[in-house]
Design a protein around this nucleic acid. Structure first.
Lengths: 222, 222
DNA sequence: TTAAAACTAAGGGATTTACGTAGGAAGGGT
DNA sequence: ACCCTTCCTACGTAAATCCCTTAGTTTTAA
């Protein structure tokens, strides 16, 4: 009944893309909306194909996968990035997390079942980490390495100006453009402009998407 | 900086309304948008004055306070009801909770400080219960008395038809009227009408409010 | 001090929503 | 059979928002 989960696959090996693609198709509730072999293509595809989840490797030609995650989180905050990597070192996991990844799976020991479960989990808005990744993360937590603020919210809030943030919050209260304008004693045109800028910065496709983002990032009331 | 919390006071004793009103005014961040001495007036005022929180007694002339809570939750799900009652029996607390109350304070031993804290808490979307009320509630929980479904969601979902629920879910996905119409192969006019009906049933004042409601009630994604 | 970023505002047509009204089908009850 | 209610469907007009562009003013950072 529900809409299928749209997945964008990013990996520089064709055979892996095909293998993953196949798995997704078999799952039934998942749909592969695109594949990319490098970060630039991935970002382009993300804008065009509107995926729910991006599954990406970290080692790719050109810019690093971490960079891709960061850009993805900035430009398309509604998309959840799931890392499927051969690396299991603290460094990679930590950086992926900091860049905004919503899940981390090592290629070494991730089963098809687990991958599908992870896709569904992150698509549902939660995070998913393999046992090994989770261990690393908890170690990082206990060492307070992430103390300098939540990586995700930092990455996601960074681009908004204070005025934009304020206006976004008013949208989450359910106010109309005119009501916001009156509240702030500015022209409705200005409000529209600010909103437009917010929508563009994050590639939101609708007001609802924008509001959901704000709520997730605690900018407004739940 | 933030907008004041709007409170509607419901109690059949003038002196109590005045006393409470005074307390709210002193608080600075709270605003009394209206008072009512009975359930009917309270409901009318709720529709007109758009409060964030309703503070109500349970014993009132005419219909019971429990009934008021239920109606309030149905017609204005965005409004949080805080019960301030002389009763501390299981029965009253349980029924108030089942009807959709977001907080419960006994008149006997609630201080001004605690009342203000409770108002701010429920206004912020959380629940607030006095220690005595909380004890009763936990007892009820442990006895599994509330096992027959979450009272709030039951009360709040009841009025929507299946078609309306379906459409509401699509709104939470960020789809426009036209997109929903295409998805369901019906006219955009029909979608608009359904949405209108949803908005009227719950007295939503904006699409955003509707979507937030749906998310809170797990009708759509977070 | 100069360039960049942020805030403000507007034009103006295209698109989307809001809102009151209304017909037809299905189901229940008498 | 008949009425009554609920639900799903749909339209017309008025209002609001979207979208893309341009641009003046202020604030901030280099």
């Amino acid at each position: 009944m529900n809409r299928k989960i749209r997945v964008l696959l990013v990996d520089d090996h064709q055979i892996i893309r095909d293998g993953l693609s196949n798995m997704m198709l078999e799952a039934g509730d998942i749909e592969v909306c695109g594949c990319a072999a490098d970060a630039a293509t991935a970002l382009e595809m993300a804008g065009k194909t509107n995926p729910d989840v991006v599954i990406t490797d970290l080692s790719m030609p050109g810019r690093s996968g971490i960079d891709l995650i960061r850009k993805m989180a900035e430009k398309f905050p509604a998309i959840r990035v799931l890392v499927l990597s051969m690396y299991v070192s603290e460094d990679y996991i930590f950086n992926a997390l900091k860049a905004g990844a919503k899940g981390y799976l090592p290629k070494q020991d991730t089963t098809k079942t687990e991958l599908l479960k992870a896709v569904r989990t992150v698509a549902g808005g939660d995070e998913y980490f393999s046992d090994t990744a989770a261990q690393v993360i908890s170690k990082l937590y206990s060492h307070n390495v992430r103390s300098a603020g939540n990586p995700e919210s930092a990455a996601r809030k960074a681009n908004l100006t204070s005025r934009e943030t304020e206006i976004l919050r008013l949208y989450t209260e359910g106010l109309s453009n005119l009501e916001i304008a009156d509240r702030l004693n500015i022209s409705i045109r200005t409000v529209e402009t600010h909103k437009n800028n917010i929508m563009q910065k994050y590639n939101f496709k609708s007001t609802v998407e924008m509001v959901k983002f704000a709520i997730r990032n605690k900018l407004g009331e739940a």
